[in-house]
């Protein structure tokens, strides 16, 4: 913000770094537009292929279908023994539970790290940061053995329960950063009024942290929705499949026969992510920018 104003106010008339000649700015826009088209063309082509009549899909590289036909969606939806309605519902259940787990458990831990005084706080904080560096492959096999022995394979529990134990340290870190920015006077005043840590957490920290909680919630949702590895390992019964596993099964079962149905279901699987992108891109972009 301040930079932008500084630029316009103090820029010397000769060669201001913020301004370009008309030719230069046309060139920049041409480059950016070319890049944009190259980037979204495959996506648009897939969406357009999903509403084309089956025989037209590979006949054309254009984005505009000659006629719109939703037959692929119907074929794709019922293309496997279990319908995509079930897969979508499963994905939704796993994603929503993950969001709840992450927001609750990570905010509890973040509040402890950001505000409470206790012996060993810095030690645990360093450990928490360290866990972000460890590739999950190291804990993968023993965790699998653990969940297998608990009888949790083919349920959503292995995907969801770890989130209620704040296993996504990245979100704890994000929330600690945000909580530290909330003025301490607010907690101190509340403490004077006899509020304990629980009330301060619940009545002050959480309501004031809605932006970071929303960022964590949206990223949790998108990452879980897109997750393939976790469901691949823990869900073997088709009734428990998430939409990503459903798509993978569809690829394997119909590799060259039903591209229309495959593109229709692929497009469908991207809709929730696209929805969040459309309405919350500001939060997402700021979330990414603050990680550095």
């Amino acid at each position: 913000m301040t930079d932008a104003t500084m630029r316009s106010v103090t820029a010397p008339p000769s060669a201001p770094p913020g301004r370009r000649s008309p030719v230069g700015s046309v060139l920049i826009h041409a480059a950016l537009i070319a890049a944009s088209i190259a980037m979204v063309y495959p996506l648009l082509w897939m969406i357009s292929a999903s509403v084309r009549p089956e025989d037209e899909i590979f006949a054309s590289t254009s984005l505009w279908p000659s006629s719109v036909d939703f037959a692929s969606y119907v074929r794709g939806w019922f293309g496997l023994d279990v319908s995509f309605g079930r897969f979508t519902w499963n994905s939704l259940v796993v994603s929503v539970l993950t969001v709840i787990g992450n927001v609750v458990a990570c905010s509890l831990a973040a509040y402890a790290f950001a505000r409470l005084r206790f012996a060993g706080r810095n030690f645990w904080f360093a450990i928490m940061l360290g866990t972000m560096m460890i590739p999950y492959h190291v804990t993968l096999i023993p965790q699998y053995v653990l969940f297998l022995n608990l009888g949790w394979v083919n349920t959503f529990l292995p995907l969801v329960v770890p989130k209620f134990l704040a296993s996504d340290a990245f979100f704890i870190f994000l929330m600690v950063q945000f909580f530290r920015g909330i003025p301490r006077e607010l907690d101190e005043a509340a403490m004077m009024d006899g509020c304990g840590p629980w009330r301060i957490y619940w009545k002050i920290m959480l309501p004031l942290s809605l932006p970071v909680l929303a960022t964590a919630a949206i990223f949790s949702f998108i990452w879980t929705w897109d997750d393939f590895f976790g469901p691949l390992i823990y869900l073997n019964d088709m009734n428990t499949y998430t939409i990503q596993l459903g798509l993978r099964t569809f690829v394997d079962s119909s590799s060259t026969s039903d591209w229309g149905g495959l593109f229709a279901m692929s497009t469908l699987s991207l809709v929730p992510v696209f929805f969040f992108f459309l309405f919350f891109q500001r939060l997402l972009i700021e979330g990414i920018a603050t990680t550095a």
């Binding site: 890049a35 980037m39 979204v40 990452w223 897109d226 993978r248 495959l262 992108f277 997402l284 990414i288």
Partner: peptide, 17 residues
């Protein structure tokens, strides 16, 4: 627009595409 693929890229749908 440029950020959109980062959000979608890890999904099975994009790999299929």
């Amino acid at each position: 627009l440029f950020y959109l693929p980062s959000l979608l890229g890890g999904s099975v749908a994009i790999a299929v595409l």
